[in-house]
């Protein structure tokens, strides 16, 4: 067992009301890793993310982040620990400017280094600097995705969960996005990449989990999973 575990999830169950969506999830992310969580629509990927970030309450199981049990914590306290969730659909603030969106990224964490982190985000996304005084709702889809990630980076994440970041982007932008994920990871951020885009996710990830019907069907290194013929045929449709 490696001792650099950043996130560990054990026997996690969660859902909405009577409906149980997650039925016993076990997952580990080590410091510095890119871990892909793959699966088609409706298998519980977003519920898993929402449970990790405290929006949805776990009905059973434990979640530990950096050694601290967080399955009963509120979202604000989980953000304060440095676990940042960039949600599906971006969820940027359309009525605020780009700059204000970024500033709110450091609402709970790293607010004393706001100016510095702004510079850093603008150096990663020069486009956001050009658009800084514009209302975020007027940005294109790709720019909104940049803003969502940039807003996440403002909190100096230790682990960033990217939920379907490639959704709705053009193939060229998707290419850029995966290059960015590699760059962020090289800069020291651990990444949990939750995607339907199997091929490209497996190219950047170190390890991967395949989620089906609320349970992990299999897990392993990205290479092993990419070359598993059974998996390719039945679950990934390749």
């Amino acid at each position: 067992m490696r001792d650099d575990v950043l996130l560990s999830i054990c026997g996690l169950h969660a859902g909405y009301g009577e409906t149980e969506v997650l039925r016993g999830i076990d997952l580990v992310i080590h410091e510095g890793e890119i871990v892909a969580v793959l699966g088609s629509n409706g298998v519980g990927k977003s519920t898993l993310n929402r449970t990790i970030s405290g929006i949805v309450r776990a009905s059973a199981g434990t979640i530990r982040f950096a050694g601290i049990a967080i399955e009963r914590e509120r979202p604000r306290d989980i953000v304060a620990l440095g676990l940042i969730h960039v949600p599906e659909g971006r969820r940027i603030f359309p009525n605020l400017t780009v700059l204000e969106n970024l500033d709110l990224g450091s609402y709970r964490r790293a607010s004393s280094r706001r100016a510095l982190n702004r510079e850093r985000v603008f150096s990663i996304f020069p486009r956001l600097y050009e658009r800084r005084s514009q209302l975020a709702g007027t940005l294109s889809g790709g720019e909104q995705q940049m803003l969502a990630i940039g807003r996440g980076l403002m909190a100096e994440p230790r682990l960033i969960i990217l939920d379907e970041p490639s959704l709705g982007l053009s193939p060229l932008l998707v290419e850029e996005l995966f290059a960015l994920i590699r760059r962020l990871n090289a800069g020291g951020v651990s990444i949990m990449l939750v995607e339907q885009n199997v091929v490209q996710s497996l190219e950047v990830a170190h390890r991967a989990y395949i989620l089906a019907e609320g349970r992990f069907l299999m897990s392993g290194t990205a290479g092993d999973i990419a070359s598993d013929p059974e998996l390719k045929r039945t679950y990934l449709g390749l």
Binding site: S53, I55, P75, R76, V79, A80, I84, H85, V86, P87, R90, R91, I92, F93, P94, N95, L104, G105, Y107, R108, R109, R151, A155
Partner: peptide
């Protein structure tokens, strides 16, 4: 305008 997004930045 965006309650979930706000929760996720720690509001």
């Amino acid at each position: 305008k965006e309650k979930l997004g706000a929760q996720l930045v720690g509001v």
